[in-house]
Design a protein around this nucleic acid. Structure first.
Lengths: 211, 211
DNA sequence: TGCGCTATTGACTTCGTAGTCAATAGCTTA
DNA sequence: TAAGCTATTGACTACGAAGTCAATAGCGCA
């Protein structure tokens, strides 16, 4: 709480800094914790400055969500190699410790969307981007002959619904370790892309071990 | 806003009335909308009366959630008949228009659990009750020879994760009508209990039509 | 070096929330 | 019909949030 000398930055830079901080809070503490104060304080500025760059907190929240999602998506789909291994890596990253914050944010945003139309629209758009990347991945797997899958969009939908289904339990006090639950994403994915469930489980485990 | 004569009720009755109102708000508007004022106003009482019966709003929210869940569960699992038809009815009710409010409440509670430990515990307990009822239903189906299912708890978990996975999209602005999505619960259920997917879809459709 | 532009602040208003507690008034009972 | 118990209220405090706007002060440029 030391009175510091005020630091003047270029608008673009300051704006970016605010956005990054808001995204950090959204990811770690939740969208409802993104407030003028919570964003301003760690940056050492006054709340009204946040207002200066973002006309309303709601707009900031939506931007923060977009920003966090874009960054996390890149992380999730990163890497190359054979399609089946990339798919396994993707699943492993989703289930990873780092994936927890992202899973929480998704759940958070999905509830938030009920009260904030703009966020609902942004969320739907972010979903479509995710689907696009997964469909691309599945298509390359089909082309490579690694799995037979008549309809890659259908498979993609099944996989994401499985991810979301498992994700809703993220805030449960004690986690649920039934093997059918812990392997749910792999199993549904194997079902969706018509490949062997046991092998996929193993590949996912191997991918997870490399972190 | 007419100044009415104050009405004095028996504590048990008043308490029940408050709880019912809170549950109604939780179901229709969300747990975050359960406030001293929002509950008091429609009952024609002052906010401090709510405080008199419930030491804290958080406690009221948890009780309201429990109450809403208990009532809705009874509705969801109601009915008799052959196990497979009861299973189909259950799915149809989940997907029903009336199921929407319940789905929203689940999503809502799952996000809320992040910030409210008591609610998290209550939610886990409510989940266990649901699982118990579905396992019972599945067991009776296996006994009746209607479907083969080695591990009914495993099947139950798969079915609920599917329900939750579909449920997270409840607040999306435009709904997603890909057949793989709209039939997701039926398809996963058929996969889980090793029965025919097409037949189950039809039974669910038939069950849905009877409302 | 000093001027001007504008990023940043401070002081403020308004709103909605939870909660406390003494005072009030409805109902029951004697 | 009067007394007493207690359900209910009113007035209050305290908090934290969004947002407005005139005043201030850093920085670039002349």
């Amino acid at each position: 709480m030391v009175a510091q000398k005020r630091e003047r930055k270029l608008p673009a830079e300051r704006r970016e800094e605010i956005l990054a901080q808001a995204a950090r809070i959204a990811l770690s503490e939740g969208l409802e914790r993104v407030t003028l104060r919570s964003v301003a304080e760690p940056l050492g500025v006054r709340p009204s400055l946040i207002n200066h760059y973002f006309p309303s907190v709601d707009a900031l929240i939506v931007s923060a969500f977009d920003s966090a999602m874009t960054r996390e998506r890149a992380r999730l789909f990163a890497g190359d190699g054979a399609p089946l291994d990339r798919l396994a890596s993707f699943i492993a990253r989703v289930e990873n410790a780092d994936g927890v914050a992202l899973t929480r944010l998704w759940l958070n945003a999905r509830n938030f969307a009920r009260f904030n139309t703009q966020l609902a629209l942004s969320l739907a758009y972010q979903e479509s981007l995710d689907r696009q990347l997964l469909v691309d991945l599945l298509n390359s797997g089909v082309e490579a002959g690694e799995f037979a899958c008549a309809d890659t969009l259908a498979a993609c939908i099944r996989i994401f619904v499985a991810i979301d289904g498992v994700g809703v339990y993220i805030n449960n006090p004690s986690d649920f370790s039934h093997p059918v639950f812990t392997n749910y994403i792999s199993d549904v994915t194997a079902w969706a892309v018509e490949t062997d469930a046991v092998e996929l489980r193993e590949r996912v485990a191997r991918a997870a071990a490399t972190y």
